[in-house]
Design a binder for these strands. Structure first.
Lengths: 213, 213
DNA sequence: CTGTCAACTGTACCGACGGTGCGGACCCTG
DNA sequence: CAGGGTCCGCACCGTCGGTACAGTTGACAG
């Protein structure tokens, strides 16, 4: 199976490179064939059509995305214990990671496929939905942990809070692209972090040094 | 000129309808010709190529977008005087307006073209940049007005604050689409509103009824 | 050693689509 | 009446996504 998987992976790699550089529509199948050396028949042996390529690409992106979040928050948990501090530190790590990307975030494939809409079939929408729900579950769990120890200063629905994390990430990627300024993404993540602090942290008078985390 | 402008507008209307329903790539020129009754030569008389159609569409979208913001915040200013209350009330109006859209927000054309990237030429990117900067200037001005009266509880850069408004709007549109739930957009706007309140309003102990605005 | 099967290749072909070129027609304005 | 802006009709092109199908290669089982 090594041979088959290898060809498929090579196609996906080439497609990913093309999509983040030029967009999905501008990345032609013929171009992928030229880069990978695979024949047209070989391509359609692995992918029924271009939509299936897109779906595979998105699924791979989501898996990688989950790995990144897992590792970032695992690292935060190694360093601090308090759930609020874990979250705040994780956001800091996330901002740093985004700031370190030389040409900025290449663009979220979930958002990309949302804006391609009907060009993709229902299965792609389902993959998207599942991804967004995974994000919600992840951040919702962290919110619940935090709220158990720190009463929020304002009434917030747990799912709304969780969605706001994804919202800021997605929105900031768009704004970074629109303004052609990669720094916007990490800055917005840190602003979200301020919101989290304001929401959960006891008033500044009670713990004046708390913002050093 | 009435005849020329009319044809052009009809093409743009048909294109807009197609794009919000199926995406830009899936809206073919031939289809627009069939709907509008314009000939292919007529189309290319008004638009050099499909990219120019996209640019015109985006420009029209941005103008409409600006009109919506103008009217919403003008209405808020008629009802209250304080800059913070104007902003909070405007966000409330905005959330209501987004909640009233029967099938949710059709998608921001600026974000859409960001994700189409190189498929469009540099002029489209320039239009996008200008739109994002207009949003920044608008919300930055409101931030400055507010900050003059209310010292923020946390140090926030004015541009970052302004960008966060756009960020939440763009991100929430994406999340609404990904989760296929139009309610997410208005809910995230109200969550942003909470952040603004937490940031600027004197602590709850000082004005316990302040969240009724 | 042989048959089988997955993993391809090569070639020819198709319709849809974006786009070009050009001659001509209609109609308003000066 | 002349000119120009607006638009039509038609022929044509290259690219792209996708299909059809016969043939080849290599690993592996019996």
């Amino acid at each position: 199976m090594a041979r088959g998987e290898d060809t498929r992976t090579r196609i996906l790699d080439a497609a990913q490179e093309g999509v983040v550089a030029k967009g999905f529509g501008a990345t032609s199948i013929d171009e992928l064939l030229a880069v990978t050396g695979v024949s047209k028949s070989g391509f359609f042996y692995h992918f029924r059509d271009k939509t299936e390529l897109a779906r595979a690409l998105i699924e791979r992106y989501i898996e990688e995305d989950e790995r990144v979040y897992d590792s970032i928050f695992a690292r935060a948990r190694e360093l601090v214990d308090d759930p609020l501090q874990v979250f705040l530190l994780g956001l800091r790590f996330l901002a740093d990671a985004m700031a370190d990307l030389p040409r900025g975030h290449p663009g979220c494939l979930v958002a990309l496929s949302c804006y391609h809409e009907r060009q993709f079939d229902g299965s792609v929408r389902e993959v998207n939905r599942e991804a967004a729900l995974m994000w919600r579950r992840r951040f919702r769990a962290m919110f619940d942990d935090i709220a158990a120890s720190y009463p929020p200063r304002t009434a917030i629905d747990g799912n709304d809070f969780a969605d706001m994390v994804s919202t800021v990430l997605e929105g900031a990627i768009v704004m970074s692209k629109a303004l052609e300024d990669p720094a916007i993404l990490p800055r917005q993540i840190l602003l979200l972090r301020e919101f989290v602090k304001l929401t959960f942290q006891p008033s500044a008078a009670w713990s004046p040094l708390s913002d050093r985390s």
